[in-house]
Nucleic acid binder design. Sequence first.
DNA 1: CGTACCTTTGACTCGTGTCAACAATGGTGG
DNA 2: CCACCATTGTTGACACGAGTCAAAGGTACG
Lengths: 247, 247
Amino acid sequence: MTSTPAKNNATCPHDKRVSCGNCRLNTICLPITFHVDDIDRLNDIIQRGRPLQKGEYLYRANDTFQSVFAIRSGAVKALTLSDSGSEQITGFYLPGEVVGMDGIADNRYTNSVIALETSSVCEIPFSRMEDLSLQIPSLQRHFFQLLSREITQDQHIIALLSKSSAETRIAALLLSISSRNSRRQLSATQFHLPMSRTDMGNFLGLTIETVSRIFSRLQKQGVLAVDKKEITILDLPALTTLSTENH
Amino acid sequence: MTSTPAKNNATCPHDKRVSCGNCRLNTICLPITFHVDDIDRLNDIIQRGRPLQKGEYLYRANDTFQSVFAIRSGAVKALTLSDSGSEQITGFYLPGEVVGMDGIADNRYTNSVIALETSSVCEIPFSRMEDLSLQIPSLQRHFFQLLSREITQDQHIIALLSKSSAETRIAALLLSISSRNSRRQLSATQFHLPMSRTDMGNFLGLTIETVSRIFSRLQKQGVLAVDKKEITILDLPALTTLSTENH
DNA sequence: CGTACCTTTGACTCGTGTCAACAATGGTGG
DNA sequence: CCACCATTGTTGACACGAGTCAAAGGTACG
């Protein structure tokens, strides 16, 4: 609500005066085959609010589903409340990625989504997107692919959790973040972890102590340099080997 | 290819002379809001081949994606080959459920699907389904929901694998099968497991020995009666409690 | 500058995996 | 129809990886 009517195209990633046409991430979250005026039509239905602060909810489990959200900057976590009441993180989402698709099935979200750091998102009202999809076949195709990609990623995680040791899980998570960073033209070997050790452990099915011990061990072995949440991958091949070992 | 041109509406679930209009499962795999002639249009694009025998592949990982498949009878398992080469089962699919949606993202399947017993499937060519979806909004909506439901189910499994003990995992799997059976008007407390102990263990991230021991223990406790693959749930509340305990 | 939270490290415990032997099952061919 | 063999499931003894409990060190924020 602060009125700063300056017209300069700010480079701040949280800036809300951005359109899909000039968004750095549009090759990630939009299909490449889009025509310019189709991009404009999509852009018209997208809403951009103020950035979320760390810890703020984007939406909560059981909220009525209305939109999916593309992360433009920052990072968020999605989590379910298990039947027993405890939180289970089901995924981390970085810029260019889309959350909220769990809500389509029953018209209410099954996850809650919380910002891990200051984050801005593009809200895509789903019913308007559906209408548009009927007119733009490549948009329909794109959303089918987005949903499908979420399925394959979740199944990757299932495979990871089902079979592998603590070390393998952590290696795989680090490599996942690494490759998603490099897709955004960021360093694949040096980056900031947006989540806490607790969140990593929760997601990977490990205790925080185990996460901490593995980090220490990988550091002693010269595979990683860890400084708080700043990670440097020193031996990428070694980490890759670790991530593919099962048990 | 055997020509038995009899016109009687056979009750054999593997019979291929079935249309969506008269399929017992259509309330599960089709949206309720369908008009009769829309059902006919969908039915026209669906292909029904000969049943799969136990152990046969429906498709293999890396095959070019062309269709999704509704299970009409029997049961199948989906599995990925992990980087290290070992198989990881990512799900079991029962009649009325749809497999193959992992292939949409990159136009090739990431899973292989194998019949657990003699099974018949309805093949839905995806590009024709997409075309039809542009004309029938409720069909587009239905497929978004199907994909979304797969996501929420996979995330359930992530939560299960991430947090819970061997006993909880097995209880949850049994209850999942139980509820899916009752959705098909079958008994919720007495049923045949389509998969081997090995498959259960693989899926749940447990060894076959552990699966076996848990079954024995639950039987001693009077929660289950187990006779080979025939399961009788004797104490549903107890099993439910077990399935919601985390660790 | 103090308080609250997060992370690290150590000692010990426990659940599940591993290894091994054996039983039961089911399919095949004589 | 039965005997054989391969496959699958069961049970036991033991080992080990990760959880638990506890304490101390760091870090961030008011």
